[in-house]
Design a protein around this nucleic acid. Structure first.
Lengths: 459, 459
DNA sequence: CAATTTGTGGCTACACATTTA
DNA sequence: TTAAATGTGTAGCCACAAATT
């Protein structure tokens, strides 16, 4: 029985556990999660201090801590020493960026579809298929890729500004596959990874599934600060960081050389595992040198073909420091055994033949064209993103939140994603939406969508 | 300081923690793991009781328990109430069944390569590629597959004796991918899954990576017993089971109908998640009805194309009960986004066109031919496995362990895998080796390998 | 069948470090 | 700068239940 009555105290959460059965801490965690999911506790709400709650429930502080830890690992709350515990900002948002099942009537600017140029790929496949030994590719592939596939991969990465030894490459079934392998193979449940305050939702969902926590790192001008990174290392005990150096998803920001060098240096000193997602790097005409080049022993550099060549290839190249190679090969094996040998071979030929250059160039042309349409209509609004980029980041007027704008747009026939989907931890979401400019099936559809967006903004 | 001196007691492990820094339980766990890995403690060794160790080290019992729990989750020890704690039987074996990097001079009968018949597949691909809309397949695929791909998948599963609603199918990038998705999506670290005493190593490694424990279930005549399963539910608190009903890997056993029904019934009663790996089922001319058919709401049924069509397709069909569909789709998305749309389409056409029947039939013919060679030489030994099966399970004379035989065979130029690689928990490994009869590149090579094996046995 | 052995898991106690005021 | 607020993590206590003797 509580010694004091707390009925007068303003506590944001006053659960009742008088008639529960089973472990207390699990019941508390379950109730907390349920109350968040059903909207009783809204994102950003500050929970009562653990001590106060323990007192109120007349149980030990540690029992609350354990309950809260469970919820924190599920990503529904965020706790900071000295500051308190908060309901996570994205607790209510759906982080899975899947295309809608029924898209009739809706112009899709949500999922990150790239421009489509497949003729050269099909041509290469046709050539390949008529060769006498082609059938052999339907047998097992080599886990992580063959030496020649790695060599062509290295050739591609060089175009992105990273001169890597082919031996250090592993092939994966796409960028997401690489990320999942890194998380499952190099991290444990409960481990922490530092990220930008807004980041790629595929990382969020994978980390969440594997019980790995994402910690937003303090930023200035869209870049991680040195102090913020040091802080996260020392006080948040992060084991690694995830960054998107070029055309950041969703903010489109390209990281400065100074920050790249700084991150590399700190990573080396603190033995951080750096996940460098170069998802868009090949879209840049003159890519900056990646962090991986400054700290090759610390950085897992991922170069996916989805956005620069074709998502259907389901292929990415990952540069892996020697110290992590064995664990990562095993993780990839555990998840997929090997990449598709046909796709791996096809990709190699596209790279070697020079077709890849044409493909990338045609993507750029398409992207520029589409961005010029976007600019034509939205130039008076704050809209981030460069001509070669496949996304734009629209900062909204005060009166909108990301989600409210997205909902309005959906009503009028355009799907966009609000900032809430990209938010990490208890970062306050900015009022912004991401526009996937390459997703609409035609330029006309894109124009139609942009007009609708403009109309909402103008109103 | 310990009150008593334990120097006279026969303790199998007497670590010293007088000058450690950092958390005690972590130090204990690390030391234990290290002593197992470096061979100081051998597989099967009984460790001192937790109480005794706690007394000896003059610390609390719970601290030992916590340390042991860490090691148990890594799979290096196995604890049973009332019985004690043992070093895991496979703590020293390499569970990754990868082909050797340098295979020169060695006949490969280790990794589970299937027979190779690719002409029909290549022909289908050629037809497909010349169609006008082929290029569209290089865009993003639908996560989990398109409706028509699911329908053809259902058609295939019907051949294996499972009449499933296409809606309940998900496509995965192979059988291992399906397993990984199930483990990551439906289980938590620390959860337990019941298995046979010997099982597929790909399950072992994936479970190990994800912190999921495998619990061997008591068997009789190579089949899980009802009592054993009840026991595991009640006392080991298993959340699911993993079974290979047809041509079990590695023992080649095909499960009786009675046991299938029994497992289905218990699964329904105890709400077990049943993972039914039908990896070889399509190789049987008249497959038995799977467990899934008796308990469709409990069973995840996996039908991979690797062993019956081609590993290069990197494709499997998974029948998923409605209650698990969302979580599994998300898990697959987190690991791979989607299957390769080209491979999925190709597989569908192979199935619809009837080419799949020819492919499977030609695999059977090849397998029978190879098995007849094996039988010719080894008929006087205890060798399990039927004519259509791609593996054989050779029970060794007393004087061999699986590993010792495998080592001897390797010396003489044949790679086979010893029982140790398949063992779960602290099961005592039987003296046996698995022969992958379809792996040698030619019949001549197979014959050469079998001769060598016979010579070792005859000696 | 009873006593003993042995591991399990929940809750508690407490020292500590950081953040905020 | 100091004191109060607040979360973290290790170690300890204890009731319990299964397996063995």
């Amino acid at each position: 029985m509580p010694v004091n009555s707390f009925e007068d105290y303003p506590m944001s959460w006053k659960p009742d556990f008088s008639k529960i059965k089973g472990p207390l801490y699990k019941a508390i965690a379950a109730k907390l999660e349920a109350d968040i999911k059903n909207g009783l506790l809204t994102p950003g709400t500050k929970l009562p201090p653990q001590r106060e709650l323990a007192d109120f429930l007349d149980i030990n502080l540690s029992t609350i801590t354990r309950a809260f830890k469970l919820c924190e690992q599920k990503g529904v709350i965020c706790a900071t020493v000295g500051n308190g515990t908060f309901v996570a900002s994205d607790a209510a948002a759906n982080p899975y960026l899947l295309p809608e099942e029924d898209v009739s009537g809706i112009i899709e600017m949500g999922p990150l579809f790239p421009a489509t140029t497949t003729d050269e790929i099909v041509a290469q496949l046709k050539k390949m298929i008529s060769e006498p030994n082609f059938g052999k590719l339907f047998q097992y592939g080599r886990p992580g890729g063959t030496p020649w596939q790695k060599e062509t991969g290295a050739k591609l990465l060089r175009k992105a500004g990273y001169d890597v030894n082919p031996e250090n490459l592993l092939l994966t079934s796409g960028g997401q596959n690489a990320i999942a392998a890194i998380l499952a193979g190099l991290f444990q449940p409960g481990d922490r990874i530092g990220t930008d305050m807004l980041t790629f939702p595929g990382l969020k969902t994978a980390a969440n599934m594997l019980g790995i926590q994402l910690i937003p790192i303090q930023q200035k001008d869209n870049e991680i600060t040195e102090a913020g990174l040091h802080y996260a290392c020392k006080n948040e005990n992060i084991k690694g960081i995830y960054v998107i150096p070029d055309y950041h998803n969703p903010t489109t920001h390209t990281m400065s050389v100074a920050t790249r060098k700084r991150i590399a240096l700190i990573a080396q000193k603190k033995h951080l595992i750096v996940i460098e997602d170069a998802i868009h790097s090949l879209l840049l005409e003159n890519p900056l040198v990646p962090i991986a080049a400054y700290a090759p022993e610390q950085v897992l550099y991922i170069s996916s073909l989805s956005k620069v060549a074709s998502p259907g290839l389901r292929l990415a190249y990952m540069a892996v420091p020697k110290q992590y190679r064995k664990k990562l090969s095993e993780a990839l094996y555990n998840m997929n055994i090997s990449v598709s040998p046909i796709m791996a071979e096809l990709a190699s030929r596209i790279i070697i033949s020079g077709a890849m250059d044409n493909i990338i160039e045609s993507h750029r042309t398409q992207n520029r064209l589409r961005n010029s349409i976007v600019d034509r209509y939205l130039k008076n609004y704050k809209i981030m993103g460069e001509p070669d980029c496949i996304i734009r980041w629209l900062i909204l007027p005060e009166r909108f939140t990301g989600e409210s704008f997205a909902a309005k747009a959906y009503q009028l026939g355009v799907q966009v994603y609000g900032a809430e989907r990209f938010v990490v931890g208890n970062t306050k979401p900015t009022g912004a939406v991401r526009l996937a400019i390459a997703a609409p099936e035609s330029l006309a559809k894109l124009e139609e969508a942009v007009k609708i967006i403009k109309k909402i903004l103008d109103k």
